[in-house]
Design a protein around this nucleic acid. Structure first.
Lengths: 136, 136
DNA sequence: GTTTTTACCTATCAAATCTATAGGTAAGAA
DNA sequence: TTCTTACCTATAGATTTGATAGGTAAAAAC
């Protein structure tokens, strides 16, 4: 499995923000209830998105989160890479992983590399705006 | 991660069998040592391959395992699906998984379906014989 | 300036999955 | 009968997943 709930929740939340349009800040609580996601769990996901500058965050009443760019500028790939910490199909190709001792002679490595690139191209070619349009 | 060690080991073992050519039965012990894989762990993988009819198995001295078809007829996809129990990118699309309550309205479902199909097409288009040739 | 509302931070935890290990049984050749 | 092999079941440590708990800090409302 490439994508866990963390990445999927992040996607859903970003789509949800896009659906509401920009402008207003939305409290995490509201999003969590609407999406049926554990509020506390969502906190950690929003923290990741916020730290990375994917969303703006404002404390206090009237605060919350909002997108700071247009939905077209968020690729699905960028959100998944951030929240999942990478989207490699096999551990041998994940960046920072302990280098496999067989890398030099591995018959399959070129195949994994091609697969990873294919998946990356696919996910970088879809944006939050595309998901909103549906039919993707 | 789509592919765990189980699937990767299975691939390596199948490539190893193909490299040696058909005919002789190779004891599991020999393959495990050559590939540096835990013998006991490999047992469970070979059992899966054997049960599914991917390899022939013979007990006793001179026995072991061997391919029963040509390397061209084993797709990478078929081996991974067997040993991994599927190769879906997300749990929502894995067959037999608890149907996601949002399937009907999920904005991302069509995307996951397309991704799964792309990955499947890719892996079904590569055979053990291709891996042997290298450069894949 | 106190209260309320919100984001942010750290620690913990249950369950599942991954990656084996252990020890035995059965089949078949020598 | 013995040796070699596949086959079967159970267990276990490590890691990841998916959360939960409880607090701190910022900012607006009162």
């Amino acid at each position: 499995m490439i994508v866990s709930t963390k990445g999927r929740y992040a996607l859903r939340v970003m789509v949800s923000f896009a659906q509401r349009g920009g402008g207003d800040y939305i409290p995490l609580k509201e999003i969590a209830e609407q999406e049926g996601i554990s509020q506390k769990y969502l906190e950690s996901i929003m923290a990741t998105l916020s730290k990375a500058g994917f969303v703006d965050a404002v404390h206090g009443k009237g605060g919350g989160y909002r997108l700071n760019r247009s939905p077209e500028s968020y690729t699905v790939g960028s959100i998944l890479k951030l929240t999942e910490g990478g989207i490699s199909a096999v551990s041998c190709t994940t960046q920072g992983a302990a280098a496999c001792s067989r890398t030099q002679c591995c018959q399959a490595k070129p195949m994994w590399d091609r697969l990873d690139k294919m998946i990356d191209d696919f996910l970088e070619g879809i944006t939050i705006a595309d998901l909103l349009k549906d039919g993707q």
